[in-house]
Design a protein around this nucleic acid. Structure first.
Lengths: 320, 320
DNA sequence: CTGAAAGCGCTTACAG
DNA sequence: CTGAAAGCGCTTACAG
């Protein structure tokens, strides 16, 4: 038994002869190692837990794709769960993940609450947070240059001459959303445009909520000249709403999004592209390093993002 | 130890007093059950393996969402892997899943090869295949009314008066694609339109491959009057190509897809909507039943699909 | 109703 | 280089 184990783990101290004999017997008997037993004795599962806000959304799916690729490359399993649920359910799901003894966790939910995070911390395993650190100093993070991306997007709109801007933000507590707001403020300052020229409504990164807020805003204040939504889902929903109500995009209202989904490409939406797959890969990379060496310091990776200009932002406002 | 186990599993033969004492001690010590050990002794992991063709694609992501929801509802973990890889890599990934001792497997890849499937069968666990049974008589299946859906789609185009049709199919070996071809043939027969009026190119369910085939077809034979692509990804790619080259959709070429992605809604693409989440849920449902009772017969579920008419198919060809 | 004991299938010092 | 033995943390008959 011990020798078989050594052969399976490619340990050096086995004679060529027995090694071959073992391989032959394994083939003959159709033997498959039992990873559960291995996990128990090694107290290591080679499995990472991934907590997403939701699955069926372009952004999360793309990041997950990167995570999956890198897991495969490193021989890791992935256990996934979704966090867009009621608080008790979410805590329960996290506990389940903890009981499964994952070796590390990736959280991808910029709206994640503190309680859930602290539950995840209680696993005592390395944690990597994507897009939001939730104030967890000891967690590693992978994010994108949110401030800069938003700055570029708003600068783009401002330099085309648009004023009367409308920003559609994420949830107030989301770190990436706050950073994007900062980027917008920087652009406004640079163009010496007062912040009154840029109204803001909260869209919670949800196309439905963004749409509801937008309709309300529109009823009260009329149409803005340009809209910058902090993700593509919201931008696309608003763009569809505008066109559906006979408003020309970009002729009457210019629209810019954030993320770089395929759907944005299809729809000709100007956006800020985040390297989603790369984020997923990097997250697995730094997680695996901390799993191998738990004393390693938390790493913080910030990936660049890029403004992609398409039709929805138009060629600029004709100055009077 | 035994008593603690009984408490954790809510077994009846425990006095209220000890039960409470155990709970108190658990809380005090911050005890978390070790699911790995439980799996080893029960030889059951409460985990299902899910093999997708790819993750970052609307169709798969939506089905996965349904799978995840149902897994949560039933207390199952899910281990996922992607099958859109080289054959050796794919086999290796499946072996890894087998070693992890999943209790059951869901395969969602209508292009899956026989060898991989037989490897998955060798786990000796229940298997549910979504959209394609790959000739595995003993596997349960969940699919949609492919023949009927395609029939409705083509009938829609034919009844609008379009002729000179172009079908863009999936891979020849994919069962759902074959069924859709049958549905198209039925519609053609019903309209007494010869099959020459409906050319077919193979798009392999891939927007890139479909686009390449389409360009080649167009160069050789010119534009058709209407296109029916067997999934939305291909339909959207072709629609974008047409508009990008100055061809009006639907004025010059009508386009219809299949799947019912959100992107199709955004783009105003007429399509056949498949209940993707429901497919995922049902797949977990019948898998869990077979996990509980392995002698149960294979189940075969066929969910309805529905034609959603939007702008891309137009109001019909003006008869000369 | 409760506890001691064997067993799930590995890994890993420990002898030989 | 190889095998016997203990141990990973549960579950489950088996006694009491």
């Amino acid at each position: 038994v011990a020798t078989v184990s050594r052969v399976l783990n490619n340990q050096p101290k086995v004679s060529k002869r027995t090694r071959e004999a073992v391989h032959a017997a394994m083939k003959r008997l159709g033997y498959t190692p039992n990873a559960v037993a291995r996990s128990l004795s090694r107290s290591r599962t080679d499995t990472i837990g991934v907590i997403f806000r939701q699955i069926a959304s372009g952004f999360y799916a793309d990041v997950m794709c990167g995570i999956e690729m890198e897991c495969r490359a490193r021989g890791l399993h992935m256990l996934i769960t979704t966090s867009d649920r009621s608080a008790p359910q979410r805590l329960y799901d996290c506990d389940q993940m903890g009981e499964a003894r994952v070796d590390g966790v990736i959280v991808l939910d910029s709206t994640m609450d503190r309680e859930t995070i602290s539950r995840v911390r209680s696993f005592g395993r390395p944690l990597v947070m994507i897009q939001n650190r939730c104030g967890e100093a000891s967690a590693s993070t992978v994010s994108t240059a949110d401030e800069q991306g938003a700055y570029l997007a708003l600068k783009h709109l401002l330099s085309l001459g648009y004023r009367r801007l409308l920003l559609i933000s994420g949830p107030p507590a989301a770190e990436d959303s706050s950073l994007r707001i900062k980027g917008c403020q920087r652009a406004l300052a640079e163009f010496q445009v007062s912040e009154e020229e840029a109204a803001m409504i909260i869209g919670h990164y949800s196309s439905q909520e963004a749409l509801a807020s937008f309709r309300e805003y529109r009823a009260r204040r009329g149409l803005p000249r340009a809209i910058f939504a902090f993700n593509d889902d919201m931008a696309l929903a608003v763009m569809k709403e505008l066109r559906g109500t006979g408003v020309g995009v970009p002729e009457e209202v210019a629209v810019v999004g954030f993320d770089g989904l395929d759907a944005a490409d299809f729809m000709g939406l100007t956006t800020v592209r985040i390297p989603m797959m790369e984020m997923g890969k990097q997250a697995v990379g730094i997680l695996a390093e901390r799993m191998a060496d738990p004393d390693r310091n938390a790493a913080h990776i910030i990936l660049p993002c890029e403004l992609i200009v398409r039709g929805s932002s138009g060629r600029g406002h004709v100055q009077p």
